[in-house]
Computed example of a mutant assay.
Amino acid sequence: MTECIFCAIADGSSPAHIVYEDTDILGFLDIRPVRPGHTLLIPKKHAADLAELSPELGGKLFVAGQSIAAALRASSIAADGVNLLVNDGRAAFQSVFHSHLHVVPRHHGDKLTLARGLLTRRDNDMPATAAILRAQLEGPRR
């Protein structure tokens, strides 16, 4: 296997704005987000594409995606919906060959800002965005 940036993020040797972690799945903000809160979910175990991703890990990715989607809706990001997206293979615009699920927050009427986001792809305050999602995922402290 060649050097994989997502494996480096998963093992802690490369930085990322982590928003979610469990035994098998890691979630972090996309460095070129379409919208603030755009999160990538990866299996910690390398799987280059869907053919290499076990159904069990694929299921865990979508369960984590549901959690991130709920946090995007309930937090101050206040998403009205989300897009869950998997790019599988070069022809489908996969650019990092480690299976991953995009969770992209959407708002009513955001077609123009989404289109602009596809071109500019930035979040001016990723640490704050990550903190918002982590706080929402952790829930109220007792």
Score class of each variant (00 low, 15 high):
residue 58 G to N: 03
residue 17 H to E: 02
residue 107 H to M: 08
residue 93 F to D: 14
residue 125 D to G: 01
residue 37 G to S: 04
residue 114 L to G: 08
residue 66 Q to S: 14
residue 12 G to F: 11
residue 81 G to S: 12
residue 49 D to T: 06
residue 10 A to R: 04
residue 81 G to N: 07
residue 118 L to Y: 09
residue 73 R to W: 12
residue 92 A to D: 09
residue 59 G to D: 08
residue 76 S to F: 07
residue 68 I to L: 10
residue 121 R to K: 13
residue 137 L to D: 05
residue 66 Q to T: 13
residue 86 V to A: 09
residue 67 S to Q: 15
residue 138 E to H: 13
residue 101 L to M: 07
residue 24 D to V: 12
residue 50 L to P: 03
residue 68 I to A: 03
residue 105 P to R: 09
residue 75 S to M: 05
residue 11 D to V: 12
residue 61 L to V: 05
residue 133 L to H: 01
residue 6 F to N: 06
residue 118 L to E: 08
residue 5 I to K: 09
residue 70 A to G: 13
residue 68 I to H: 04
residue 39 T to I: 02
residue 66 Q to I: 11
residue 23 T to Q: 14
residue 53 L to H: 09
residue 117 G to H: 00
residue 132 I to Q: 02
residue 25 I to S: 07
residue 22 D to H: 07
residue 55 P to Q: 10
residue 105 P to W: 05
residue 80 D to W: 10
residue 11 D to N: 15
residue 127 P to V: 01
residue 111 K to Q: 13
residue 110 D to I: 07
residue 103 V to G: 05
residue 27 G to T: 02
residue 70 A to Q: 15
residue 21 E to Y: 04
residue 76 S to R: 13
residue 102 H to D: 05
residue 119 L to C: 11
residue 45 K to W: 09
residue 90 R to T: 14
residue 28 F to R: 00
residue 7 C to F: 04
residue 136 Q to A: 15
residue 87 N to F: 08
residue 125 D to H: 00
residue 141 R to C: 11
residue 105 P to N: 06
residue 86 V to K: 02
residue 3 E to A: 15
residue 46 H to L: 09
residue 46 H to R: 12
residue 7 C to L: 07
residue 121 R to P: 01
residue 24 D to H: 13
residue 68 I to F: 06
residue 76 S to P: 10
residue 43 P to E: 06
residue 30 D to W: 02
residue 19 V to L: 01
residue 132 I to T: 08
residue 54 S to F: 08
residue 126 M to H: 02
residue 16 A to D: 05
residue 40 L to D: 00
residue 116 R to W: 14
residue 15 P to G: 02
residue 123 D to A: 00
residue 105 P to M: 07
residue 18 I to P: 03
residue 78 A to Q: 09
residue 142 R to N: 15
residue 34 V to R: 05
residue 69 A to D: 07
residue 80 D to F: 10
residue 124 N to A: 12
residue 25 I to R: 07
residue 112 L to Y: 12
residue 90 R to D: 14
residue 49 D to F: 08
residue 41 L to H: 04
residue 93 F to E: 14
residue 54 S to C: 08
residue 26 L to R: 02
residue 77 I to L: 14
residue 138 E to R: 15
residue 62 F to E: 03
residue 52 E to A: 15
residue 129 T to I: 03
residue 122 R to L: 10
residue 57 L to W: 08
residue 58 G to K: 04
residue 24 D to P: 07
residue 139 G to M: 06
residue 36 P to Q: 02
residue 17 H to R: 02
residue 67 S to I: 11
residue 22 D to R: 08
residue 64 A to Y: 03
residue 13 S to V: 12
residue 31 I to Q: 01
residue 106 R to V: 10
residue 25 I to K: 09
residue 92 A to W: 10
residue 79 A to Y: 07
residue 127 P to Q: 00
